[in-house]
Design a protein around this nucleic acid. Structure first.
Lengths: 199, 199
DNA sequence: AGATTAAGCGTACGATCGTACGTTATGCAA
DNA sequence: TTGCATAACGTACGATCGTACGCTTAATCT
């Protein structure tokens, strides 16, 4: 069935391609995702796939956007109603570890995968990734600062190091699960987070 | 200069290829390393490069072997003289974070890179990686168990979760440095490790 | 109804991928 | 000194890569 000019159907096509790209990327890395393999998965021609995005980098960027959207939905949306400070921080630890343990992608948490894939590269994906992660870091920092001000955390709390620790623990859930077969990775990460926060 | 049959010279060639592969892999991932690019770097023909290893997977495995050798030299060899238990564990934290911060590869710690690249894949590299990492984990577990027995750590220490925490923190040094530009990532990891251990 | 727009297809391109093969040149053993 | 093993070469192969182009077809708008 060639050539339905319905903008709505096209949008659905885009989404299915991006979803397939995310699935593949979670296993092999976003940079190893190939137009040809995507075309096979979504049962389209290569030109039909790339035609939606004009360039591969645009497809990668839209995939990253999906990752952020997922993270926002699964983590931020369940936490934003909590009062800023220690309560929201602890709620974030819950939602965050839960998300990393069951991210909805076959190869584990795509946020983690993309982070380690593009940390040492240049380009638009690297830049967008950094921007998105910084937004989350800012939230964590705000919660920590508020918690310290409120007296819920010790005065000498090293905010930057705590943020580092939380991100570390969340990021190791995927390899612990996939490589070492650790099915309790999420709860270990959660336990570590509490210890790092030191509440 | 084609065809020197000196086994010694050939060994040097192998090493230079593997070294180049490690350098490249630290940036783009081991799976993205290409015979052609390696040939360019070491100034050889593609067939000359692959001829040393017969297959690309063999080259990848030998590269992983180099990574383990480096880790052994830089971390294990500097801590193995310490008495098993808390002293060796703390020494390991020092050497480990130091290594991750300055691994000698342009794209950061290759051990980390390979871990996140192959955690969700099948194959010989995945298997070898798991084996190598498990060896290190066994050492950490032994130190923790001894430390608990000796009364240096609390009785209720969750050994497995502490191991998880230490590996997490070490693994996030590279992305913190490369992505977020955090030049103090190693000391943050070190600080976190002490907290996780809870000594 | 006719014109316009755009989704998706098919084909083709130049590059590069990993690997196989035969050749050449060298060092070492007989 | 002759013969053998092998390091490295050059070439070639089939696949696959990302992308460009033109065509067909269907939905939308005048």
């Amino acid at each position: 069935m060639a050539g339905r000019a319905s903008a709505q159907a096209a949008l659905e096509t885009r989404r299915s391609v991006v979803k397939a790209a995310a699935d593949l990327a979670s296993i092999e890395g976003l940079d190893s995702v190939t137009i040809g393999r995507l075309a096979e998965i979504v049962q389209m021609s290569k030109s039909g796939v790339i035609g939606q995005f004009r360039t591969k980098e645009a497809l990668q960027l839209e995939t990253v956007e999906l990752v952020f959207a997922d993270f926002r939905t699964r983590v931020w949306d369940t936490v934003k109603r909590f009062p800023q400070g220690l309560p929201r921080l602890l709620a974030a630890c819950d939602a965050w570890t839960e998300y990393a343990a069951d991210p909805g992608y076959p190869g584990g948490c795509l946020m983690t995968q993309v982070t380690y894939d593009y940390d040492g590269r240049d380009g638009a994906v690297h830049e967008r990734l950094l921007e998105g992660r910084n937004q989350w870091r800012a939230t964590l920092r705000a919660d920590l600062a508020t918690a310290v001000e409120a007296g819920d955390l010790p005065e000498d709390t090293d905010v930057e190091s705590v943020v580092f620790g939380l991100e570390s623990l969340a990021s190791f859930i995927t390899p612990a699960r996939l490589l070492h077969g650790d099915m309790r990775a999420a709860e270990r990460a959660h336990q570590g987070m509490r210890r790092i926060i030191g509440a």
